[in-house]
């Protein structure tokens, strides 16, 4: 139907973003001949505004409650707290952050998360491989593993407070095989590993489901070929599965990293409150303490900006990796 793409749909640019959709024009040409001229003009105005009306609430909320606060926060991080409230202080807040051992611990722990990231990706990846290869009971495992992923960090944290207590069941089980009790949440050298371990326990099911969705796009003929050629399981994983799932693997890397940076607050709040000796601080917990407990909103904003920069690096790394793999396709 080659109608309507000529003059009526071409308007001067200054009519703004509420311009009518292309197929509206076609529909009107085809179907509304019986309308009176005035009615159809009123209808046209409403129709032209339709995309604007449909998008207005979303745009207003996102702009005023997400993007605008981001700028506000960056701006805020260059002003002072307390007596210097509102005055410009340049990079003072950032310098103070660098001086603060708690914030340095928080950044160090981010480094630790990066180091542990491959483990957090490999575990669900390996389990998904087994489930995909139809290990006996794979359906059961699939739904059991996914279960903790829907629980709140608060609930997970509260449960593991009981399990990992010094006289709790986990140490009791270790005791029966002759391993001494470990103070999982009270030892500054151990606590951060405990919390990250619990985070992995709580989220690996999410990554597992994503991996399984990736597997379903894998060409079964490749796996059959590998089997015919007598490839071992490690060989199959290395030469067939990993290359075939590269996009999924990257996606899981990025979402797991983002999850570790932004969804461990509940665990920290319930399990360690940043302790012992501040050893389990992460940037998000630091931001919350400075804002809520210490009444240092400007310093908290500076920490927020640093966290955002870290997130930006993760996001850009994702994009560049995707570009590169896109080029190979």
């Amino acid at each position: 139907m080659p109608v309507g793409r000529s003059s009526p749909s071409v308007r001067p640019a200054d009519t703004g973003r509420a311009e009518g959709a292309g197929f509206e024009q076609r529909a009107r040409h085809g179907g509304t001949g019986t309308h009176s001229r005035r009615a159809s003009r009123a209808g046209t105005a409403a129709e032209r505004l339709a995309p604007l009306v449909l998008l207005a609430p979303a745009v207003l909320i996102i702009v005023f409650l997400r993007l605008w606060p981001l700028l506000l926060g960056v701006n805020f991080s260059f002003t002072g707290d307390g007596a210097r409230n509102g005055t410009a202080v340049g990079f003072d807040n950032y310098l103070e952050l660098l001086d603060d051992p708690l914030f340095r611990t928080a950044l160090g722990n981010v480094g630790l998360l990066v180091v542990l990231l491959p483990v957090a990706v490999a575990i669900p990846g390996l389990l998904a491989t087994f489930i995909y290869l139809r290990v006996p009971g794979h359906r059961f495992y699939r739904s059991v593993y996914f279960f903790p992923a829907v629980l709140s960090p608060v609930i997970v944290g509260a449960i593991f407070n009981l399990i990992l207590a010094f006289d709790g069941p986990f140490n009791a089980v270790l005791g029966t095989i002759g391993l001494g009790p470990v103070d999982w949440l009270g030892d500054p050298g151990v606590a951060i590993f405990t919390v990250v371990g619990v985070q992995i326990w709580a989220t690996f099911g999410m990554a597992l489901v994503v991996f399984l969705a990736g597997f379903s796009t894998l060409d079964p003929a490749l796996l059959d070929a590998a089997r015919v050629d007598g490839a071992s399981l490690p060989q199959t994983v290395w030469h067939v599965i990993i290359p075939g799932l590269s996009r999924t693997i990257q996606f899981v890397f990025v979402t797991t990293m983002i999850g570790m940076l932004t969804s461990m607050f509940g665990l920290l709040y319930v399990m360690t409150a940043g302790g012992p000796e501040g050893s389990t601080y992460l940037p998000e917990f630091y931001i919350w303490t400075q804002q809520g407990q210490m009444n240092r909103p400007a310093l908290a904003s500076a920490a927020s900006t640093v966290l955002f920069l870290i997130m930006l690096v993760v996001g850009l790394a994702q994009i560049s990796v995707l570009r590169r793999s896109g080029g190979e396709d």
Partner: peptide, 29 residues
């Protein structure tokens, strides 16, 4: 729907996806 600015709005939503609450907590409060 096709309209001017639809791509900008979509990219704006995508960008907002990468702004976690922790980052805007102080100004939002």
């Amino acid at each position: 729907l096709r309209f001017r600015g639809s791509r900008v709005v979509f990219l704006g939503c995508l960008a907002a996806l990468f702004v976690p609450f922790q980052v805007i907590m102080v100004p939002l409060a």
